[in-house]
């Protein structure tokens, strides 16, 4: 059905190679998230799969068929764009019907499929409006509707939620996850937001400068990051890194400890520091603690903690949650 295989795929824009040789297997029905900082090549990779960019070398196999040189229209994929990319001169109904019209389906079939998509996505109330008369969330639903009617081999999402406000983003995130459960179609989702990646993915692909840093299930990346980049990128707030003698004690060049794996005490502990900025989220508090030669540490405390800025505190890392890295930044397991 919707498996996608990339073999030694590269992409260069002029002399600049943005994707070095890359191999990737996406299995049928998987929800795969490409995540990484801006400019890491994640959108380019998605566009290569879509056929909107030509690969410089290598091959792409979709659904068992060689698709490297196939036109976007012939790949059987549907895409949801960051800007929604709805047709402004067409009603919601016509927007959703467009791919079916291009596939030359009969009017009766088109109507049935559009009705069905509108029902699934709660679009029925504004089916005859133009995109300009819809809110951001509604437009996003129309874009998704236009993608699902085609029953594609896979869905491609290019940062689809980044134009929405925070609350709507959470709702849409759930809707997309539910959609994936009910359709069981392969989905490839690009985002720079690691929270989206962690909450939605079956499999996360972490990209950095065009290279795949690690591929794995969300918790696998969280618990066993392959290197310092993945360790720092996955998890919020970021993992704390310590170098020097403290790391040497653990036979490592660098040690990493997540903010949620540090215990804070006003009486005793391993590392002494002074409380700096505190971010109060209600449920949690993120404290910045200046630990002198060890550097600044972020600590996550559940609920509120009665410490003031400038107060001396002690931090103790949970030894079982300590990550060790060698001189090249690779994890030592």
């Amino acid at each position: 059905m919707g498996s996608i295989t990339l073999k030694q795929v590269t992409k260069a824009f002029g002399p600049k190679e943005v994707i070095p040789p890359l191999d990737l297997d996406i299995h049928d029905g998987e929800f795969v998230v490409f995540v990484g900082p801006s400019g890491c090549g994640k959108s380019t990779l998605l566009r290569l799969i879509a056929g909107l960019e030509d690969v410089t070398s290598g091959s792409i196999v979709i659904d068992g068929k060689e698709a490297t040189d196939a036109a976007p229209a012939k790949r059987g994929l549907a895409m949801v764009f960051q800007s929604y990319a709805l047709y402004p001169h067409m009603s919601v109904r016509k927007n959703i019907a467009f791919p079916l019209k291009m596939a030359k389906l009969s009017q009766a079939e088109i109507d049935a499929k559009v009705e069905n998509a509108a029902r699934i996505l709660n679009l029925a109330d504004y089916i005859d409006r133009r995109p300009g008369q819809l809110s951001g969330g509604q437009r996003q639903r129309v874009a998704i509707g236009r993608a699902i009617v085609r029953e594609p081999a896979a869905f491609l999402f290019d940062e689809p939620l980044s134009n929405l406000d925070a609350a709507l983003r959470v709702t849409m995130r759930q809707e997309i996850s539910e959609l994936h459960q009910s359709l069981a179609t392969t989905m490839i989702y690009v985002t720079h937001d690691q929270v989206e990646a962690m909450t939605m993915a079956d499999k996360i692909v972490v990209l950095h400068d065009g290279y795949i840093e690690q591929v794995g299930a969300p918790l696998e990346l969280y618990e066993r990051p392959r290197n310092m980049f993945v360790a720092g990128f996955i998890g919020s707030p970021k993992m704390n890194f310590v170098e020097g003698p403290e790391a040497a004690k653990h036979d490592a060049h660098t040690i990493g400890i997540r903010p949620e794996h540090l215990t804070i005490s006003t009486e005793s502990g391993s590392w002494e520091g002074k409380v700096g900025l505190a971010e109060h989220l209600g449920s949690d508090t993120f404290l910045k603690v200046d630990c002198g030669p060890l550097g600044e540490m972020t600590v996550r405390v559940v609920g509120e903690l009665g410490v003031k800025a400038g107060q001396t505190v002690w931090l103790t890392p949970d030894p079982s949650k300590l990550h060790r890295f060698d001189g090249k930044g690779l994890s030592i397991f």
Partner: peptide, 27 residues
């Protein structure tokens, strides 16, 4: 005219002719 709209049109299965007739010209 945003390039993404024309790309969306290609993803939706339109060829160059359909792209010009159904999307580019009306816009």
């Amino acid at each position: 005219i945003p390039g993404e709209i024309l790309e969306a049109c290609r993803m939706d299965g339109a060829g160059l002719r359909e792209e010009i007739i159904h999307v580019l010209t009306p816009m």
